[in-house]
């Protein structure tokens, strides 16, 4: 394998990691502030993608589609927070797992009811459709570069939001002492709804951004959800920094594992066996990574609990 190809694969891993971060950031924020484990986060990702596809189909504008994904997912998040989720904050994790598992069923089949069983059409805008040439002569899809840039910008914005703004202070206070911020006169239930809607909006945006280069279909959220859980467990639940590091680790492991493992086995096996063994191992690689991290750090890389 050439160096250029390797660099391109690293970029690919980076891009998939950045997208995972958008999912994982919301999950970890919601867990950190409210102590809630939300399996339905993948459904919000799906809601974002479907909203974007519907709006793009009606208006033809990709920017409007992205805005629609943010609004639809945030609205869906706020509604389920007020109707269902807020009853779960003082329950144990088991109840939270089950109730949000039930929400997955409702969201998935509800979406299928509204949009039908076939995948929807959503494409990247024409201006970003082709590849661009990077230094060194690497041809790389412009849209994927945009994803990396947007993702990094959002990550930076999120860090600023939490470090510098009033709501960020409340969020940090909520993470360390939930009773205290209530005593200080912060409207907790409003704060919780805002945080949940923010997490949902990030998931919805990720769904729309990724939906343009993948298939927009019912059930698209669950594989990403499981990956995002792996990310936050590796990074340490509740830590935004952990989510970023975990997401990049998982993205790179997943991408490079699929490429490098078959090659590595090819050194001492015949080609078809190496492909079979390498691919099988690659599909398990991130779970192995997670098991190893937890063995050495049972609360993840940046976890404190």
């Amino acid at each position: 394998m050439t160096t250029l190809l390797l660099i391109e694969q690293v970029l690919n891993g980076l891009q998939s990691g950045i997208m995972l971060f958008l999912m994982a950031a919301g999950l970890t924020l919601i867990f950190g502030v409210m102590g809630l484990i939300n399996l339905a986060h993948g459904s919000l990702y799906m809601v974002g993608a479907f909203a974007a596809a519907a709006v793009a189909g009606a208006t033809g504008s990709f920017v409007l589609a992205l805005m629609a994904s943010l609004i639809a997912a945030a609205a869906a998040g706020a509604v389920i927070e007020m109707v269902v989720i807020r009853r779960l904050y003082d329950r144990d994790h088991l109840d939270q797992v089950l109730a949000t598992f039930a929400l997955i069923l409702i969201f998935s089949e509800g979406t299928r009811w509204v949009f039908g069983s076939f995948p929807l059409y959503l494409d990247v805008p024409a201006a970003l459709a082709g590849p661009v040439t990077l230094p060194g002569g690497i041809l790389y899809p412009a849209y994927r570069l945009l994803i990396i840039v947007v993702g990094l910008a959002i990550a930076a914005g999120l860090f600023l939001l939490i470090a510098r703004t009033r709501i960020g202070i409340q969020i940090r206070a909520g993470e360390s002492d939930r009773e205290m911020i209530g005593a200080l006169g912060v409207d907790i239930s409003r704060l919780y709804t805002i945080v949940f809607a923010l997490g949902a909006a990030l998931a919805g945006l990720a769904g729309a951004l990724v939906g343009a280069i993948q298939s927009v279909q019912v059930g698209m959220g669950e594989p990403v959800l499981i990956l995002a859980f792996v990310v936050i467990v590796i990074g340490g639940i509740g830590s935004i920094k952990g989510a970023l590091v975990g997401a990049l680790l998982v993205g790179l492991t997943d991408t490079l594992g699929g490429v490098l493992l078959p090659l590595a086995f090819g050194v001492f096996m015949d080609a078809s066996t190496a492909t079979a063994v390498g691919s099988a191992l690659a599909s398990m690689s991130i779970y192995i990574l997670m098991a190893i991290v937890l063995l050495y750090r049972p609360t993840g890389l940046f976890g404190t609990v």
């Binding site: 394998m1 050439t2 190809l5 391109e8 694969q9 690919n12 891993g13 891009q15 998939s16 041809l139 899809p141 994927r144 990724v210 280069i213 993948q214 298939s215 698209m220 594989p223 991408t255 490079l256 699929g258 490429v259 078959p262 078809s272 492909t275 079979a276 691919s279 690659a282 599909s283």
Partner: peptide
């Protein structure tokens, strides 16, 4: 070349790079 991907995989950037090369 023959590449076997994970069932249900949604991102093929790595494979497309291999195809290009």
């Amino acid at each position: 070349n023959e590449v076997y991907t994970k069932l249900g995989q949604t991102d093929y950037a790595a494979e497309i790079a291999q195809i290009r090369a």
